[in-house]
């Protein structure tokens, strides 16, 4: 059962997407459709330009750390047809995840991709200005990763800052 009020069935979206760009859909459930990470931009562009899908707006972009892999989640919506589409891209490489940037399709991805890069460490290749958004350059690790607290010298509640002397624990 689709969760949101006007969410399209993932199977349906996946079938159409596959017909247009063969082999791009890896998996589809009632809720979402998983596409090949390398071809995410093509898939999003097709979804945006197809008159029936009409995914004119990128509503939300975020990522989930599933311990062994990353899921990048795109919520698209059509304003004219009033429906939502959820697209996922799974990144198997947990150490250096990367994915093409969809900035060329949706300018609204600008800051959301930066946020995801900053907190999750997923590189968006082709982003016009990929940098840390909230944290400073050189901050060790990416906090929203599940293994962040297991980083060396880091335990809950007591961060140490890179500009402080080695061996001196911050308060």
């Amino acid at each position: 059962m689709p969760r949101a009020v006007h969410q399209l069935d993932g199977h349906d979206v996946g079938r159409r997407l596959n017909a247009a760009l063969s082999g791009v859909v890896l998996r589809a459930t009632e809720e979402w459709v998983e596409v090949e990470a390398g071809r995410i931009v093509d898939a999003l562009r097709w979804l945006r330009d197809d008159p029936e899908m009409d995914a004119a707006q990128l509503s939300c972009l975020t990522a989930v750390d599933q311990h062994d892999r990353f899921e990048v989640v795109y919520f698209l919506q059509s304003l004219d047809n009033n429906h939502q589409i959820e697209v996922k891209a799974v990144l198997e490489d947990h150490d250096t995840p990367s994915l093409p940037s969809c900035y060329s399709v949706y300018t609204g991805a600008l800051l959301q991709e930066l946020e995801t890069y900053d907190l999750m460490g997923i590189r968006f290749e082709g982003h016009p200005d990929l940098k840390r958004l909230f944290l400073w350059e050189g901050f060790p690790g990416h906090p929203l990763r599940k293994d962040f607290l297991k980083l060396e010298g880091r335990f809950p509640g007591l961060p140490s800052f890179p500009y402080e002397e080695q061996g001196v624990q911050a308060r």
Partner: peptide, 20 residues
């Protein structure tokens, strides 16, 4: 067009003429 593509929502989007 820019407002929709740039993921603007709320009063910003409506001010641009999109009844959403």
């Amino acid at each position: 067009e820019d407002a929709i593509n740039g993921s603007l929502t709320g009063p910003m989007l409506r001010a641009s003429g999109v009844p959403w």
